[in-house]
């Protein structure tokens, strides 16, 4: 009896937290749009943030993408050969990489690296009154700190995804070359032959949503973090979890929509 009661409260608490979190995100994004679309725009700061995001993540994204491409081929090669489909290896890897692995890996890595960074940075700025200091210097923190970061992640995750796709395909090529001898020219011909715009467009479109989610969650959690060092740490932590789950849910929804449109 007591346990069912406990489960109930735990469950309703989690539900409360979920809806509270969603409301928080929604309210925050409304504010960002309201403030962000008004001039003057902070172009310089957006570029600055794009650069930061690129610098911070391109090595990590590159290495991970390469390894995943390599591993993908090494693991699927025996099965594909067994079914006599060895020659489909480039096509298979290109579709899995462009449709799923590239976008998802880039988004998850950036959720961990960029999202937590944004949230910790804004959180500690808030706690040490640096955001207040910006405000008294006549700078709207929603524009200068938040809108710029969200715009930067929304622009940079797609760019990083294209880069990850490319590196991952090279990883796959390397994987194919461990056992076989695949010509680079031949390989990329097969890769691009296999790709249709129905593969590329949905998977490229979803990366914008991934980027937006990572930026929005990171900024919201950081900006609203509780006072104190613990609050800042917790904000960074929660932002990673929430944006990762968000990315996966968006991925699922986009896949459903593409499938409904008959593109799968």
């Amino acid at each position: 009896m007591a346990t069912s009661q406990d489960t109930k409260t735990v469950f309703s608490k989690a539900l409360d937290e979920f809806f509270y979190g969603m409301a928080e995100l929604a309210g925050f994004s409304v504010n960002v749009f309201k403030e962000g679309i008004k001039p003057p725009y902070e172009f310089k700061e957006v570029l600055n943030q794009c650069y930061e995001i690129g610098i911070k993540s391109f090595v990590l994204v590159g290495v991970t993408a390469f390894i995943l491409g390599l591993v993908l081929v090494m693991q699927s090669r025996p099965t594909m050969i067994e079914f006599g489909a060895g020659s489909y290896l480039p096509a298979m890897s290109s579709i899995s990489i462009v449709r799923e692995i590239g976008p998802l890996v880039t988004a998850l890595i950036c959720a961990g690296k960029i999202g937590s960074g944004i949230s910790a940075e804004l959180g500690s700025m808030k706690v040490t009154e640096q955001i207040d200091a910006m405000e008294v210097s006549g700078t709207n923190p929603f524009k200068y700190l938040v809108a710029t970061r969200i715009l930067a992640t929304t622009l940079m995750i797609p760019i990083l995804t294209v880069y990850a796709d490319f590196i991952s395909l090279i990883g796959a090529l390397t994987g194919s070359n461990i056992k076989d001898d695949v010509n680079v020219h031949f390989y990329f011909n097969r890769v691009f032959e296999a790709l249709h715009y129905t593969d590329v467009i949905p998977s490229f479109t979803k990366t914008f949503f991934f980027g937006f989610t990572i930026g929005l969650v990171g900024c919201t959690k950081g900006y609203n973090s509780k006072k104190g060092t613990e609050g800042v740490g917790k904000a960074a932590n929660v932002s990673v979890v929430v944006s990762m789950v968000g990315v996966i849910i968006i991925d699922m929804v986009v896949t459903q929509i593409t499938s409904m449109l008959g593109y799968l």
């Binding site: 040490t128 640096q130 200091a133 006549g138």
Partner: peptide, 15 residues
């Protein structure tokens, strides 16, 4: 606000 200077108790420097 640009016509007002504010000196924070905690200094609030951009770290």
């Amino acid at each position: 606000r640009m016509r007002i200077g504010f000196v924070f108790q905690s200094s609030a420097l951009y770290d």
